[in-house]
Design a protein around this nucleic acid. Structure first.
Lengths: 201, 201
DNA sequence: CTGCAACTTGCACTCACTGCAAGAATAGAG
DNA sequence: CTCTATTCTTGCAGTGAGTGCAAGTTGCAG
């Protein structure tokens, strides 16, 4: 299950290694000394790279700590959702889609766990994490537009997007509460149940 | 309704005026030239203040553009919620609470409208806006803890907090879609309805 | 081996944001 | 009105994030 395919050529391999080294250094140093007492320069040289190169890999210090990367949604999951599936009931299908995002979100489970732990100590990271959700939701809203032709819905895109974001975060929190058992996607049903519970008073 | 009580002494009045001047300058300049092509120095001197003073009023450039301020929840609304009211049904009471936050959020309705418009053009502002929601939700979670003694609930604080945040943003978006009719709180029921619609498939 | 493309790096720069200490304005007591 | 304590503003000097550019380096294909 997804450390993704090991890349064949040296270029891609190094790229991956450097990226990992930066995340590892960032998480370790920030864990030891706090977000504001670690500079990008320190992270970079701990990873054996220049500061300038750091910014070729990440847009910000926070992104490196969280190990944020572009999410690539599984083509099959994507196609199924767009064509109005898999179940035809929006909320159910949304759940499947979110699960797809969640499993692709953190290729390295330990890295994700460390990121979650650091978020507890550094609230700023939570905001950055949510900002990243926003990007995912942007992706999702394109899919929604396509799906509408196949299966219209009275619920507007914004609401659907926000609920998706809520489910992502809620799953992550439930995952943390469980002591990081399994992966975040495994706690999605729990998140949905909580939401229903609240809405039904 | 609520430009709040006009303060009596000159100190408080000037403080308010300067704050307003900074927000006005920030919104105008950013509207004209974009968030990244306006410096804090430009905003400050447009408002007739020093750069240093700018940061006595706001934590960041983005905050000034959004006109972000500490929210003060109505003491009565607060007390009622904590003691398990007003209706006793969590979702309903949450709605009342969120309405309370929303009406206190933007003392100046035009300023809020300009902020919403700028968010469309500058996605970074959306993130900052959501980050501000987080702070409000932090406040809310304290109330939730107190309310639990009066009226326990099987739904966890995180979920409730996230739904509150969702309702705030959803109301704001509905307000924008309506062409800024009334205030954001007026569109809360619409937001709740959309959410229920989605959850009930 | 050679030339091409991708990647890294140093450099110079802008600007957000902070702590500090000195100075100006104001409130309030007398 | 005057004096004083308090609050607010400001300049200054500094840190560090993040960017554009141009010059090297490194891996890749033919």
């Amino acid at each position: 299950m997804s450390t993704s395919a090991p890349p064949p050529n040296a270029r891609e391999r190094q790229k991956r290694e450097r990226r990992l080294a930066l995340i590892e250094a960032a998480q370790r140093l920030v864990g030891e000394r706090g977000l504001d007492d670690v500079t990008v320069e320190e992270i970079s040289s701990a990873a054996g790279l220049s500061t300038r190169t750091f910014f070729n890999y990440f847009d910000s210090k926070d992104d490196a700590v969280l190990g944020i990367q572009e999410i690539e949604l599984d083509a099959e999951v994507r196609a199924q959702f767009v064509s109005g599936g898999p179940s035809g009931r929006l909320m159910t299908d949304l759940e499947a889609l979110v699960a797809g995002f969640l499993t692709n979100a953190a290729p390295n489970i330990e890295q994700g766990e460390r990121a979650m732990r650091l978020m507890v100590a550094e609230p700023r990271l939570v905001q950055r994490h949510i900002a990243w959700h926003q990007r995912v939701i942007g992706e999702l809203e394109q899919l929604l537009a396509e799906r509408r032709t196949a299966r219209p819905s009275p619920v507007d895109d914004d609401t659907i997007g926000m609920v998706a974001g809520l489910l992502m975060r809620s799953s992550a929190l439930a995952w943390a509460r469980s002591g990081y058992e399994g992966d975040a996607a495994a706690h999605l049903p729990e998140a949905v149940a909580q939401l229903r519970l609240l809405l039904d008073d």
